[in-house]
Design a protein around this nucleic acid. Structure first.
Lengths: 196, 196
DNA sequence: CTGATTAAGCAACGTTCGATGCACAATTAG
DNA sequence: CTAATTGTGCATCGAACGTTGCTTAATCAG
């Protein structure tokens, strides 16, 4: 159901996927509008007509990235231990997936930001804060149910550190096997970490 | 012993420390020459006379960062377990030190780099690769001595992931207490991780 | 003193940055 | 058909980017 006006001559969703991949690979400021238009195969004016600004395009790209995450079966798992394990294994597989850039876009795409673009940094740090809150909530529930004794925040921060670190390892060309080995180690540690 | 020529009117070491701090805080491309000269209190020409180029200045800043790391007592520790623990505790304290930018410069300062500055990315990834090799070597020695059974590379990658992840957590304003709790968890996991 | 050498200040270089004004094309609604 | 609306191409905007030439200033060796 197209409204009035000249119809767009390119696939907006495909262009957004291209932008997501570029931002994911190199980061917000390291990707120029010229890089984007070249990869999308469109003109500068079309990009601005369709997406408004570089920042709005990045926000859409981050939303797309967060939406395509399959939730990893995190909420379906019966125990917190299994929830964490499913999440970590899904991410380990995703981070070394050869068809996508290595590591997590939310961790890697807005690390080096000049003061002028601080809202972009805030965007991703807010997402990480929300994700941490979700993990803490899930662990707190399990803690209240008596699944483990360690403070839920401490458990969350430990597994978050492992998770974030895997993004850096992926950027350093860690293989799927190596990332899975990290998850194996982290899960072997579950009892020692959660019962203290 | 100054040679011939007009003497420099600023403290080169202090200026380099200022540059290190800026690059550490925001990253290579997010810091401009104008940012640097303003923070250093010198003119553009003086910066180029003293340091050559932005990239050479960054390399010196990274060298300074690596040099000021006190080696953490890593090599002095009698066992691999203690070596890893000392390293992690020293880094946890350093990452949340209020007088310096949060997290590790080698992990954070060259994440988002455009294609033109790829040598800068290579610089920091090479340092991480060398550090990983050192850790693997230390763990391999302990493994050969029978301190533990798990493959040294797997142990190294697990603790490296925790270490790298702490940099991201530090950037997200994790407190010293929270980072120390991550180290506590990681070290409580030693036996479970190393004997499998 | 002279000559050599190095630093600092000023002004500007060419390039790239993100973003836009404008004319024109292509569609829908009536 | 006309009017309204939206997308595209072209040219370009002002600002910021890293870097440099040139002049002048300040030191050393002789």
């Amino acid at each position: 159901m197209p409204g009035p006006g000249r119809p767009r001559e390119f696939d907006r969703d495909a262009a957004l996927r291209t932008a997501m991949r570029l931002f994911w690979e190199r980061g917000y400021e390291a990707v120029s509008i010229a890089d984007l238009t070249a990869a999308m195969g469109i003109g500068t004016r079309s990009l601005y007509t369709a997406f408004g600004s570089k920042e709005r395009l990045f926000r859409e790209a981050i939303d797309l990235y967060n939406g395509t995450g399959t939730a990893d079966g995190f909420y379906a798992a019966p125990t917190a231990c299994q929830a964490v394990e499913r999440m970590l294994r899904a991410r380990a597989a995703a981070y070394a997936e050869p068809d996508t850039p290595p590591g997590c876009m939310v961790v890697l795409a807005a690390t080096n930001i000049s003061a002028a673009n601080d809202p972009v940094r805030t965007l991703v740090t807010d997402i990480r804060a929300r994700d941490r809150a979700d993990l803490v909530a899930r662990l707190s529930e399990a803690h209240a149910r008596g699944e483990f004794t360690t403070a839920p925040e401490a458990v969350a921060d430990f597994y978050l550190s492992v998770l974030y670190g895997m993004s850096v390892r992926a950027r350093d060309n860690a293989s799927t096997t190596q990332l899975v080995a990290v998850v194996d180690a982290a899960m072997a540690a579950w009892d020692a970490v959660t019962r203290r």
